[in-house]
């Protein structure tokens, strides 16, 4: 028998072709690429910006109250206490983005765990887990968040945990559906017939093949979490002043809508920009990671 080495095959070769293809397909998605650029800029600005601005976010300057944008060094104006809005916006961004990413991490890990266990074991284990998911989904998430946050000290950490509690179900459902189909594939059966442990099959055979949908859902979760955080902070249950967050900046702007509209417009636009950027990235990833092209 001649020894054959792998050479190019018409349909399925090129070294790591899918990586290139995935990337180029993502970047071809114009909105997604724009979204990615905006998020990168926003993150950079939130990380570096506060060090570059002449004011910090807590400095009160009563002489400069209600300065409109572009007054001297107050590029985005000041608030009713004369604090610099640009500084507050960027510091708020740190908190909002951090909450978004943390929620994404927690709910993705938790949701994936629930989904993979439910999908792999099926039977009564799967039924019980998925009914719990349904029960959580049955509550409107805003309501759930507000009820929970009424009971706890609203620190950024607790806010993150509370929001994560309402965000993991979507991922659990996506993962469960994906695992249910993957577990019937021959490579999973081969592992089972070799005596592989449940843990191996779940985390080495199944989860890596479900990464595409998980990544997409995780991205959309960030958008959702940022929005939820803004929402509860706006209602006063979230991040508490003087710590700034995009939501509580909107809250404090309510009274002055007519006289100082920039107080609401600036954080409002930022929230919209961040949330829609993450949504666009999610859409782009969905197209680029389309499971049909990754699992032959």
């Amino acid at each position: 028998m001649t020894t054959m080495t792998a050479a190019g095959d018409a349909a399925h070769t090129r070294h790591h072709w899918w990586q290139h293809r995935t990337l180029s397909r993502f970047l071809r998605h114009r909105l997604a690429a724009t979204g990615l650029a905006i998020i990168l800029m926003l993150t950079l600005a939130c990380l570096l910006g506060p060090h570059l601005l002449p004011y910090d976010e807590l400095t009160v300057d009563l002489r400069a109250r209600f300065s409109p944008p572009l007054t001297q060094d107050h590029y985005l104006g000041t608030d009713p206490l004369g604090r610099d809005i640009a500084a507050r916006l960027l510091m708020a961004g740190r908190i909002s983005l951090l909450v978004g990413f943390s929620v994404m991490l927690i709910s993705t890990v938790f949701g994936t765990l629930i989904g993979v266990v439910a999908g792999y074991f099926r039977g009564w284990v799967g039924s019980v887990l998925m009914r719990i998911v349904d029960a959580f989904l049955a509550f409107p998430s805003i309501f759930l968040v507000l009820v929970l946050s009424a009971f706890v000290e609203p620190s950024p950490f607790m806010i993150t945990v509370i929001i994560a509690l309402t965000c993991w179900m979507e991922i659990a459902r996506i993962v469960e559906a994906e695992i249910l189909s993957l577990r019937e594939r021959d490579f999973t059966i081969a592992a089972r017939l070799s005596g592989a442990s449940a843990r191996w099959i779940m985390f080495r055979e199944l989860v890596p093949n479900a990464m595409g949908p998980i990544i997409v859902a995780a991205t959309l979760t960030i958008a959702n979490a940022i929005l939820l955080e803004a929402y509860i902070s706006f209602l006063g249950y979230g991040i508490q002043p003087p710590l700034p967050s995009w939501g509580n900046m909107l809250n404090s702007a309510q009274q002055y809508l007519a006289d100082a509209p920039w107080l609401a417009i600036v954080p409002g636009i930022t929230i919209t920009l961040a949330v829609s950027s993450f949504n666009f990235i999610g859409d782009g990833l969905r197209d680029a990671l389309d499971s049909r092209s990754n699992l032959p």
């Binding site: 095959d9 018409a10 070769t13």
Partner: peptide, 10 residues
């Protein structure tokens, strides 16, 4: 038949 069908690109 030894070997395999060639890639149309080469």
């Amino acid at each position: 038949i030894a070997g395999r069908v060639p890639d149309p690109a080469s």
